[in-house]
Computed example of a mutant assay.
Amino acid sequence: MADIVDSASRSRMMAGIRNKNTKPEIKIRRALHAKGFRYRLHDTRLPGKPDLVLPRYRAVIQVQGCFWHAHDCALFKLPATRTEFWRQKIGRNQERDRQNTLRLLELGWRVLIWWECNTRNSSEFEEAIETVIEWLRTNDRYLEIG
């Protein structure tokens, strides 16, 4: 099936997709800040430049887009056009995620992965924020929400 827009429009649309300061990321940041948590953003000294770094808890939070990181949820569907290109691109994203997580854990950081789909429903979001707060107060090394 052919694309429904011309290549210039598609290029402009794809260029507008952010990798920092996304809506899910901002929503999580606001919620944590309102609860009294302070953090750094996109610390370049750490592998993968984590979205939120909470030095006091030696923890990082990575907010993953369900499409770009192939989450097993309703928000991910492999495109029907250029399937092999997308499979490779998303596969590289997943491998880079694994490597960055392993490196962070080796450096003694605790890692939380938050999937985009878990920011959509208000009641689930509030529960997830409470789960994050509980996790930050433990010594658990890894948590995935979504």
Rank of each mutant, 00 (worst) to 15 (best):
I17T: 11
I17P: 05
I17D: 04
I17M: 13
R18D: 03
R18C: 02
R18F: 01
R18N: 07
R18V: 03
N19A: 11
N19G: 15
N19W: 08
K20V: 10
T22Y: 05
T22K: 03
T22H: 09
T22I: 07
P24K: 04
E25H: 12
E25P: 11
I26R: 09
K27P: 01
K27M: 07
K27L: 13
I28H: 00
I28V: 15
R29P: 05
R30P: 00
A31L: 05
A31F: 14
A31G: 11
A31Y: 15
L32N: 02
L32C: 03
H33W: 15
H33A: 02
H33I: 01
A34I: 02
A34H: 06
K35F: 00
K35W: 00
K35R: 15
G36D: 01
F37E: 07
F37V: 14
R38I: 04
R40P: 05
R40A: 09
L41V: 13
L41Y: 12
L41N: 07
H42D: 02
D43E: 07
D43T: 04
D43F: 04
T44V: 11
L46K: 05
L46A: 04
P47F: 00
P47C: 02
P47S: 08
G48M: 08
K49E: 06
K49G: 00
K49D: 03
K49T: 11
P50E: 07
P50T: 05
D51L: 09
D51V: 10
L52A: 02
V53N: 05
V53P: 07
P55E: 06
P55M: 02
R56H: 13
A59W: 04
V60R: 10
V60K: 08
I61G: 01
Q62E: 14
Q62P: 02
Q62Y: 14
Q62W: 08
Q62L: 13
V63L: 12
V63T: 10
Q64Y: 14
Q64I: 04
G65L: 07
G65D: 12
G65M: 09
C66I: 11
F67P: 13
F67Y: 09
F67C: 14
W68I: 13
A70V: 06
A70C: 08
H71P: 09
D72F: 13
C73S: 09
A74Q: 10
L75C: 05
L75G: 02
F76H: 15
K77M: 09
K77F: 13
K77R: 14
L78G: 03
P79H: 12
A80H: 10
A80E: 15
A80Y: 04
A80M: 11
A80N: 12
T81A: 12
R82N: 15
R82G: 12
T83L: 00
T83Y: 06
F85K: 08
R87Q: 15
Q88L: 14
K89L: 08
K89Y: 03
K89D: 06
K89E: 09
K89F: 01
I90L: 10
I90R: 13
G91I: 08
G91L: 09
R92D: 13
R92N: 12
